[in-house]
Simulated scan of single mutants.
Amino acid sequence: MRLADYINDLLYRYDCVIVPNFGGFITNKIAASVNTTTHTFYPPKKRLTFNAYLQHNDGLLANYIAATKNSSFEEAVAFITEEVALWNEELATTTIQVASVGSLSLNESKKLIFEPNPSSNFLTDSYGLAEVTVPAVERVEQEKVVPISTEQETKTIPLYLKRVAAAAVFVGVAYVGWNGIQNQQQQDALANQEEAVQKKIQSATFVIDNPLPTINLNVRKETKNFHIIAGAFQEVSNANSKLVALQEKGFEASIVGKNNLGLTQVAFASYTTREEARKALETIKATASKDAWLLAK
Results as ranks from 00 to 15, higher is better:
Ala31Phe: 09
Ala174Phe: 08
Ile7Ala: 05
Gly257Cys: 08
Ile284Trp: 01
Ile208Met: 11
Gln142Cys: 11
Lys110Glu: 13
Gly177Glu: 02
Ala204Phe: 09
Thr133Leu: 04
Leu48Ile: 14
Thr37Tyr: 12
Phe122Cys: 06
Gln185Arg: 15
Gln247Val: 05
Leu123Ala: 13
His39Thr: 08
Glu248Lys: 10
Tyr64Ala: 01
Val132Cys: 09
Lys29Ala: 15
Ile157Cys: 09
Phe41Asp: 00
Pro211Trp: 06
Asn21Thr: 04
Ala85Met: 09
Pro118Asp: 11
Thr36Lys: 10
Val101Gln: 01
Asp58Glu: 09
Ala130Gly: 02
Val19Glu: 00
Ile148Gly: 03
Glu195Thr: 04
Lys200Tyr: 01
Tyr175Asp: 01
Ser126Phe: 07
Tyr6Thr: 05
Arg2Asn: 10
Val98Met: 06
Glu275Tyr: 03
Ser100Arg: 07
Ala85Lys: 15
Gly257Thr: 10
Gln186Trp: 13
Pro116Leu: 05
Ile255Val: 11
Gly180Tyr: 13
Asn260Pro: 06
Gln202Gly: 11
Arg2Leu: 07
Pro211Thr: 07
Thr223Ile: 14
Gln97Thr: 12
Arg163Trp: 12
Val77His: 00
Asn225Trp: 00
Tyr127Ile: 15
Phe233Asn: 02
Glu275Ala: 15
Ala32Cys: 01
Ser105Asn: 11
Asn216Trp: 06
Phe73Ala: 01
Asn57Asp: 13
Lys297Met: 08
Ala31Ser: 14
Glu82Met: 07
Leu281Asn: 01
Trp87Asp: 07
Asn240Leu: 11
Asn238Tyr: 04
Ile148Tyr: 02
Arg13Ala: 14
Ser105Gly: 03
Ala66Asn: 01
Val164His: 07
Lys258Tyr: 06
Leu129Cys: 08
Leu295Cys: 00
Ile80Thr: 07
Lys199Trp: 07
Tyr271Gln: 02
Ala239Trp: 02
Leu243Lys: 12
Ser241Val: 09
Thr272His: 02
Gln265Arg: 14
Phe73Glu: 05
Asp188Thr: 14
Gln97Met: 02
Ala253Ser: 11
Pro211Ala: 07
Pro135Ile: 06
Thr264Gln: 07
Ile208Gly: 02
Val134Cys: 14
Glu141Val: 13
Phe114Cys: 09
Ser270Glu: 04
Val19Ala: 03
Val101Glu: 01
Gln142Trp: 04
Lys297Phe: 04
Asn192Leu: 15
Val169His: 05
Lys110Phe: 08
Asp5Cys: 03
Ala4Ile: 05
Ile201Ala: 14
Ile229Cys: 08
Gln55Tyr: 00
Glu235Thr: 04
